[in-house]
Design a protein around this nucleic acid. Structure first.
Ligand SMILES: [Zn+2]
Ligand SMILES: [Zn+2]
Ligand SMILES: [Zn+2]
Ligand SMILES: [Zn+2]
Lengths: 131, 131
DNA sequence: AAGAACCATGAGAACGATTGTCAAGACGAG
DNA sequence: CTCGTCTTGACAATCGTTCTCATGGTTCTT
């Protein structure tokens, strides 16, 4: 009963995610792999990232230009991010008050199956220093 | 000193936005125009929608599948939306507490030029009734 | 009303991110 | 090692959106 296999490519993608501090796109990750001499197909990068997202080991969010960014996820809990627009570095933040507010607003208006997205973007201290 | 002109196409796009209750994609709006016999090029729809967004007369947000949705904007104030995943209908919501929380979290972490995105998705009463 | 100036339009090409296809390759249980 | 099955990768295809540029429509000025 084989299910999920341990391949070189899967390990490589996971390794890159471990080393990156912030969010990065699939193509950026593919680029990093290339620079290291790790040959991994772009489709494979996409597939493995998606698998990691499904396994809730990686967070994904959509940047302003619409491309999806990935980052290793610390907590398995529901949380949001404070992301640097410039370097991608991110801080995981939790806002219990926001959670309950969102739910309240939704139910008050008769909505069910409620979900929400919340991201905070800014320029981190390091990036604003190196102007 | 000519600047912004009053064309048939611009009026048509604006009219559709007035009649739609919820968020709709550029292509959906283009489709509606087609059904009414209003010939408007897809590029033109995109251009006019973007112009309306820049003029802050229309709200834009990105749906889960990544496509941009547009909707006539009531207030000029900063606000967020409670959107029906199924029909696009939306309620404008304001959350002063969320605003200040987001700013606080960001400054505490040394981030500047702070912005945020927040959308609540769910199924509206009408849509969950017609299952 | 007529002309000039120039913004707007549309058809299609171009784009960039992501997904699908499918034959060939790699993995791991037995 | 062998076999069944999961994965991979090169490339085509899709999808939303933007770009190009020749043509058409508006508005301002006489
Ligand atoms: Zn930064
Ligand atoms: Zn939340
Ligand atoms: Zn609905
Ligand atoms: Zn806000």
């Amino acid at each position: 009963m084989v299910d999920i296999r341990n391949t070189r490519q899967r390990r490589a993608v996971s390794a890159v995610l471990d080393e990156l501090e912030g969010f990065a796109s699939a193509q950026q990750i593919h680029g990093v792999l290339g620079q290291r001499g790790e040959k991994v197909g772009l489709s494979t990068v996409y597939r493995n990232l998606q698998a990691l997202v499904d396994a809730e080991q990686v967070d994904a969010l959509r940047g302003n230009d619409g491309e999806v960014l990935y980052r290793r996820c610390e907590a398995g809990e529901h949380h949001h991010h404070l992301v640097c627009r410039s370097c991608g570095r991110a801080v995981e933040v939790a806002g219990p008050a926001v959670e309950s507010w969102a739910t309240k607003v939704a139910t008050e208006n008769g909505f069910t199956d409620v979900e929400h997205t919340l991201e905070i973007f800014g320029t981190c201290a390091d990036c604003s220093a190196s102007t």
